[in-house]
């Protein structure tokens, strides 16, 4: 187990190093000079040069890269070109919306998917299964922003239970959670549909395994065998999907953020790209990469907890 952990950790650090280098290079070679963009096309060359010096764009690339990485390691992400504000604070503000939203949606998706997947697998080929399959097909087919608009229409406009958008901040946690509920549901529904289908097919595959027959030969009912012996074995693909979903939810919520006027990471990165605010783009992307790699690391750990055979291999 220790060897497994060391190996995973080493690969995590290496991935981060490679990712930071790639992000820096890609953003560097992207066309468009932030200084020129900020000053407009009619700016005089010496003004542009002055701004470049001020933004630190005139030092060699290697130094800039090292300064950037060093800054990130100490929690200093630099200063935004456009807003002239510390990037760390900008990201932190947005993260307080995006992270809870992603976790909220992930929790909802899991809570919805597990009973649905188990039900469909247990009732395979019968009404319950068809119901779940039809529902999840719909969940996958309909885009989440459409769900979002329907939710707003029903729960915000007609019933008035929730507000139609905006985020009041965390001073009042109950209110904050309430305002995140509709976006979380809109995000969770398609994810739950995918997860339920993955769980169903994993369980059905497991049902055909020899050890499930052994379990039945001991006197377990179908349901007991599925619950006691099937579920844990079916968790590996489910964990994989969960890991992918979290990464997606963290940054991919941009449309939902727009629909609900939420100040999240997705909107921040969208704005920064259109304004050539490279330092913000780099930092947010790096942060997302970090999140994805961390989630993968945690998924790997979860694999090892679920499946004892993986603790030995690496």
């Amino acid at each position: 187990m220790l060897a497994y952990l060391t190996r995973r950790l080493t690969s995590l650090i290496l991935s981060l190093a490679v990712a930071s280098l790639e992000i820096f290079l890609v953003v560097e070679v992207a066309p468009g000079d932030p200084a020129r963009f900020m000053l407009g096309i009619n700016a005089r060359p010496d003004t542009v040069a002055a701004l470049r010096a001020e933004l630190g764009l005139d030092v060699p690339r290697v130094e800039r890269y090292l300064a950037w990485v060093g800054g990130m390691l100490t929690g200093d992400f630099g200063t935004s070109y456009t807003y002239r504000a510390p990037v760390t604070e900008m990201i932190a503000d947005r993260l307080w919306v995006s992270l809870p939203l992603a976790l909220y949606a992930l929790a909802l998706s899991t809570v919805l998917a597990f009973p649905a997947g188990l039900l469909a697998a247990a009732k395979r080929g019968r009404a319950g299964d068809y119901g779940v399959m039809a529902g999840t097909q719909l969940g996958i087919a309909i885009p989440n922003f459409w769900f979002a608009m329907l939710l707003v229409l029903l729960f915000a406009i007609n019933l008035g239970w929730f507000s139609a958008g905006g985020f009041p901040g965390w001073e009042n946690p109950a209110l904050a959670i309430k305002s995140l509920t509709l976006p979380a549901v809109a995000l969770a529904l398609p994810q739950a549909a995918i997860l339920a289908r993955v769980l169903r097919s994993a369980l059905i595959e497991i049902t055909g395994e020899d050890f499930m027959r052994t379990a039945r030969a001991k006197g377990l009912t179908r349901g007991q065998a599925l619950w006691r012996h099937g579920l844990r074995n079916a968790l590996i693909p489910v964990l994989t999907i969960l890991g992918l979903q979290f990464s997606f939810l963290l940054a991919g919520a941009i449309i939902i953020e727009q629909v609900f006027f939420l100040p999240g990471l997705g909107r921040l990165i969208f704005q920064s790209i259109s304004q050539r605010d490279l330092i913000v783009v780099e930092s947010v992307v790096m942060l997302l990469v970090f999140a994805v790699i961390m989630v993968n690391f945690l998924t790997d750990l979860a694999y090892a907890i679920v499946d004892p055979r993986l603790r030995r291999r690496a």
Partner: peptide, 16 residues
Amino acid sequence: MGMIFQEPMTALNPVQ
């Protein structure tokens, strides 16, 4: 009645 199966490699639950 108890039953023993052919494939010992797959007849046991690997995670228990």
